[in-house]
């Protein structure tokens, strides 16, 4: 079947199999940041945005992306670098495999929530598993990042 969509603001039309998951599609288009960690929608690694809202691309058929704007980490590089600097400053990126999906959700949270509490943050990101970090360093990075955004400090991770 034919599909027409915007991938990281690039308009594309492709011939695809009807059962192709969005995850496989975006990887086939060179968006290698998108990872698969499970087959059961549990890990959050494959998170991308569909029209600005986070979705699990392993569980969305490409056909459903018809006419939508799909965004992967490659499409928000500047913001990824900005938050990523805070994560790296904590050593919280670790193996990195969960980072892209996690960061997509952190940025979506930043757009969606105002002044989130620790509990809000945990709730919002509950679907993003990480096996390396124990989550504490990620939490420190998120809080420092949000604080810096609020204070409009430069986006280089240097807050102290």
């Amino acid at each position: 079947m034919k599909i027409h969509l915007w991938l990281n603001e690039r308009e594309i039309t492709r011939e695809i199999d009807a059962d192709l998951p969005l995850l496989e599609f975006v990887r086939s288009e060179g968006c290698y940041s998108v990872k698969r960690g499970c087959e059961t929608s549990n890990c959050g690694l494959c998170t991308v945005w569909m029209d600005g809202r986070p979705v699990l691309s392993c569980s969305v058929l490409t056909a459903r992306a018809e006419g939508t704007h799909i965004t992967t980490l490659e499409g928000v590089r500047e913001r990824a670098e900005a938050f990523g600097a805070f994560l790296a400053k904590q050593g919280g990126e670790q193996c990195g495999f969960c980072n892209p999906g996690f960061i997509m959700n952190v940025l979506a949270m930043e757009d969606e929530l105002t002044n989130p509490s620790d509990e809000d943050i945990r709730e919002y990101l509950a679907g993003n598993l990480c096996r390396c970090s124990g989550y504490e360093s990620q939490m420190r990075a998120i809080k420092e990042y949000l604080r810096s955004r609020k204070d409009e400090l430069p986006l280089n991770g240097e807050t102290e």
């Binding site: 940041s33 670098e81 600097a85 790296a88 990126e93 990195g96």
Partner: peptide, 21 residues
């Protein structure tokens, strides 16, 4: 010292650095 990992920015920006990439 709290030195940042040498591969950190590649990882946080989702560069294709793993086996299947």
């Amino acid at each position: 010292a709290p030195v940042i990992k040498k591969d950190a920015m590649a990882l946080v920006t989702g560069q294709p650095v793993y086996m299947d990439d």
